[in-house]
Design a binder for these strands. Structure first.
Lengths: 232, 232
DNA sequence: ATCGTCATTTGGTAAGACCAGTTTAAGACT
DNA sequence: AGTCTTAAACTGGTCTTACCAAATGACGAT
């Protein structure tokens, strides 16, 4: 029986960081621990840590700038370009919402399944703050807060591809989502009551770690908004 | 008119090494200047040099081992696998020789065109030493000396792909070449006179920097040997 | 020509220092 | 409460010196 050779500290650091990335623990756009901290944690010199970081950079996993913090890259970014020139027809807006139903359903499912206790705690705080802030906010602010909440769920899902795709998807279609909200507000004169309650249901299912329920509520939430839009 | 930004010393080192490789100045298998020497030459710290070297390693241009010297890699090595299992028939041996005629013709051409004075000087020394050594040598030694001479020509051609391909080609087909020589010696009882003179003609054309003539002589040399083999 | 030994050279890593760029915290102001 | 300015702190980039482990080369003996 062959015994795998002992890894050097550099190899262990490389493996650790790559595993963190693969496990969705390091969110694209977020910073990594500093070189000095990793050096201390792994009993390495900063130069050795830098060599590992450079390797990750060259594999497009990480980007660094002098003085700024090293950041995790979105792995899909170089390979997936959302279509730009297509006009935002109603049909396309409905398509976007169907995609959201899928994305946010899955995000809620995995968030309920995998989020750490700390992540759930932060999610609760964000949800409560969002409730407080809802009064008196513009449409744009409401759309942004909504998106922040859903991105936070995605980022707590520990699902690398889900997180990566969601980031690109929302970066591209945020305007479409904002338009949908504006259209809905214009038609009903106010935020439809159902939506507030739906957010609450999603949040409750996640906090209760009920994965199937969270998926259902999140998906239903978007599909409900889709029906409102279709009826316009 | 846009002025290209000033390169950092690290970028200059990287560019310098990559240009050396591309220009066939760094022969696959040969060592690179040491880290300490490059650091001194480019006014960089060894750590900065190491970062550049690591980048080249990761791009499969260079390989290093502790204590050993950094070496240039054969760029074709990972992409080109000579067929292994095919039996060395006479037909294949003739094919190998036709390939040699092309390779060594081109190598002689570019060597005559591009070899530095120093390279020509070393080539003359090797040729003269080869003449001296020819007496009393075994077939294997003669085949090796012949190969060394032709590889030296290739390595002085400053043609990266020619050098790379020649290395892989000869590593693979050395036995076939050796067999050809054995067969020829067996048939004629001795090295055919023409071959010695042909080497001389090749060498003279190269030293005279007559590229077209060098190509002709080198190609003819192999085709002549091919005819001898075919007549077996 | 080959082998063993030893000195030298080489790559690998560590520790500390300094520089340049970015980020954050604190205080003032509105 | 929000914004702006400034200074401190933190970060990445590079350097210097030192030491360790592995490979290479020179030299002498056989």
């Amino acid at each position: 029986m062959t015994i795998p050779p002992q890894l050097t500290a550099k190899e262990r650091l490389q493996q650790f960081l790559m595993k963190q990335i693969a496990a969705g623990e390091l969110i694209p756009g977020n910073s990594l621990p500093s070189e000095r901290k990793l050096a201390s944690d792994f009993q390495l010199s900063r130069n050795s840590v830098r060599e590992v970081m450079q390797s990750l950079q060259q594999n497009n996993l990480v980007e660094t700038t002098q003085g700024g913090r090293s950041r995790c890259q979105n792995l899909l970014q170089p390979h997936l370009e959302m279509p730009k020139s297509v006009e935002m027809s109603l049909a396309l807006q409905l398509d976007v919402m169907e995609m959201r139903a899928f994305l946010e359903g899955e995000a809620a499912y995995y968030c309920a399944l995998r989020a750490t206790d700390e992540q759930l705690r932060l999610l609760k705080i964000e949800y409560q703050a969002m409730q407080q802030r809802r009064r008196g906010q513009s449409t744009l602010h409401k759309a942004k807060a909504d998106l922040t909440f859903h991105m936070m769920i995605a980022e707590s899902s520990h699902h690398l591809l889900l997180i990566s795709f969601s980031q690109l998807f929302y970066a591209r279609y945020f305007n479409a989502i904002h338009e949908v909200l504006s259209t809905t507000l214009k038609r009903y004169g106010r935020y439809p009551d159902g939506i507030g309650r739906q957010h609450e249901k999603i949040h409750k299912a996640i906090q209760a770690r009920n994965a199937e329920q969270a998926r259902l509520e999140a998906s239903e939430h978007i599909l409900y908004t889709r029906r409102l839009l279709e009826a316009s």
